[in-house]
């Protein structure tokens, strides 16, 4: 399982370095467009949660300072 994951990442690096980004995004039936969409949504939600955590930390500090 881990071995195949390694193989996959090696494949990814090879493919990414050997062809322009546009061709890469269009390869394998444009599946990478879907992958990028999922990555955008994930990063967006994580960024939102990060900001929320900062806000909570501030409140915690306010409580401690009292």
């Amino acid at each position: 399982m881990i071995f195949s994951l390694h193989l996959f990442s090696i494949y990814l690096v090879l493919v990414l370095t050997s062809m322009p980004l546009d061709d890469f995004m269009r390869s394998t039936g444009k599946i990478w467009v879907v992958v990028i969409s999922l990555v955008i949504i994930f990063i967006g939600i994580v960024f939102f949660l990060y900001k929320l955590e900062n806000r909570i930390s501030k409140i915690e500090k306010e409580i401690k300072d009292e």
């Binding site: 444009k30 467009v33 990028i36 969409s37 955008i40 939102f48």
Partner: peptide, 21 residues
């Protein structure tokens, strides 16, 4: 706030989708 976050993510994913279609 969360609705707007979803909207921004919708715009971004839509833009990438539009680029390749």
């Amino acid at each position: 706030l969360v609705g707007t976050l979803f909207g921004i993510l919708g715009i971004l994913t839509g833009a990438v989708w539009a680029k390749y279609t």
